[in-house]
Design a protein around this nucleic acid. Structure first.
Lengths: 327, 327
DNA sequence: GGTTCACGTGACAACGTTATCCCGGCATGG
DNA sequence: CCATGCCGGGATAACGTTGTCACGTGAACC
């Protein structure tokens, strides 16, 4: 900037004015400065700007795994919106490790971003309190944060599971199994609760061994399927509570002669190519990312606003698998 | 930091020493300062640190689309390695738009990151020259950069296509179609050239209408398949040059009574679940991300080193589709 | 006993930017 | 002709950090 000022024969501050598009610069001076900027290839140092200004024009995004298509889609939506406001996006993955979540989030906070988006894993996010008091806008996504006043954008898990169950009931199924994630996980709790509630509403009793919850993995899924398809009393349909479980179930059933009816929470890439088709309850990660950015803006505009919770609608995409009649 | 110094009754500089783990602090002073840091919830401001130090502890990653599983996997690998060195990762997508690539990359450069990783789309990346002279380490991935001296990490496209073709030849196919991306794309050129070369080596003539190149899309793929499966002289096997084309082909053929033998360049998530199985040439995005990070480190250690090009091996994963005998 | 030396600590400047305050000149109005 | 006001532009300090240098104290050495 000093060099530019020298080249244009003006003071440092005038260059600053030009760079920031302030109106109080005479047209002729403006030209000279812009010329010098081009000649010297000058670009404002955002780091220094941040130091002066207090906050960096950046959004931090802490997800569970950026390679997970769901979070990748959220990331893309966030990035698209962020770019419109000239914000850069910093991304980190917690890999479902609470300590790592904290590490990554605090590492981002040291960059003093404008906003922080977090898909919470840890029990509490109170380690963010100092930064929140210092003006950081925080928004949770996928799950609510605990221990901090914080906006949240969540899928409408209950409605999604209700749609899945009612879809199967409509097609004549009565013995429906539910295979979900560890109940320590917020979304898993919401989804299994909705499963029980919907079944109860329709007067369909639920055997306890028809509901299996656990960490998605080969052993868990294999054991659960053995129980559910016990020849003495097999289920005719299955609802899976997240995409890792769905994938594992599909792997197990890929070469079975008849696949049971299956409705999966969370869409899978290429699900449309599977035969028989896979009916899914699709979340809307793009809408979630956009909602998060809206909440962040509004939070920055009014830091004292009450924490809001936004539920993003989900969508049942019938692809044939629910229509399989009970055997 | 000033507050911490005051609370601990030491000078600013001593706090700095503690924060940076310098050894020249007396144990008793160290304790006092660390106590004050905890009490006040102090964290070093990375922005200010950068200003002093010249470069930010950050890696910028410009990909074509962060929601693409291939780039998401690269992103995760980069992030994992970066975290080990306390580097944050900034991610942006060019969405295959040269102007946007420039915009995003230069926006990152204004943050003065330590390294920039780019999946080039634009014809030339010479807009990075000023930053490179200023000490920015740059590495291209997926495709080489043009107009700048720059390391690159690429898949071994030629070997992959060779494996695909030879796999099909081994299974008795002689009429093999190739469906690839627009030849303006570097990888597309390498792959189709390898197709022709391998066929020629094995003395199998290639009809011109058996090779179709174009932007992946419904119309292009539909037209290409019509030509190739013309009943008068149909191909018995197909090689697809990237995953968007593969997905489109599968969509077209999903409900066909017999699917031709198919080998796809680039793995698809859940490809193992498709029936008939899909044989693929899998790239190794994780290895690519790791190689990129190694190149960046070595570039930082020796900015004058000659640009290097690293080829990452690909792997043929037979899943049955190549074994389909010619009809 | 004086000279080195090592060690722990502190004062200060500088990184690149911008907010605040100030100055000089020109036009306008009485 | 002078007072007033406006406008373009400059000097300075400050944001939070760290590299450089210097200071003071005690111990070890000849």
């Amino acid at each position: 900037m000093k060099d530019v000022a020298e080249a244009a024969g003006v003071a440092l501050k005038t260059v600053s004015r030009v760079v920031n598009g302030e109106a109080t610069v005479a047209p002729e001076t403006l030209d000279r400065v812009q010329q010098a900027i081009r000649t010297l290839g000058y670009r404002r140092d955002e780091g220094a700007r941040q130091l002066r200004h207090g906050r960096s024009q950046a959004i931090a995004l802490v997800v569970r795994d950026i390679a997970d298509p769901f979070f990748a889609a959220i990331g893309r939506a966030v990035e698209t919106r962020a770019e419109e406001d000239d914000l850069v996006v910093m991304i980190g993955s917690s890999h479902d490790d609470p300590a790592r979540e904290r590490e990554v989030a605090l590492g981002f906070c040291a960059r003093r971003p404008t906003g922080l988006i977090i898909a919470p894993i840890a029990k509490r996010q109170d380690y963010l309190l100092p930064d929140i008091s210092a003006g950081l806008a925080v928004c949770a996504v996928d799950r609510p944060a605990q221990g901090i006043p914080c906006d949240a954008v969540l899928s409408d898990n209950a409605a999604g599971v209700r749609m899945a169950v009612e879809h199967l009931l409509r097609h004549g199924h009565r013995r429906i199994g539910y295979l979900g994630d560890d109940p320590a996980v917020f979304t898993a709790r919401e989804r299994v609760a909705a499963f029980r509630a919907t079944m109860a509403e329709h007067g369909v009793p639920v055997d306890e061994h028809e509901v299996r919850l656990g960490a998605p993995g080969r052993e868990f899924v294999a054991a659960a399927l053995r129980t559910m398809f016990d020849p003495s009393d097999p289920v005719t349909a299955l609802v899976t509570g997240n995409n890792r479980i769905t994938a594992e179930v599909l792997r197990h059933l890929a070469d079975a002669p008849h696949r049971p009816a299956l409705v999966a929470f969370d869409d899978l890439e290429l699900a449309e190519l599977l035969r028989p088709g896979l009916t899914v309850v699709a979340q809307d990660p793009v809408a979630m990312g956009e909602a998060v950015m809206r909440l962040l803006s509004s939070r920055l505009a009014d830091p004292a606003r009450e924490p809001a919770e936004v539920r993003i609608p989900v969508r049942l995409i019938p692809r044939g698998s629910g229509e399989l009649r009970p055997r």
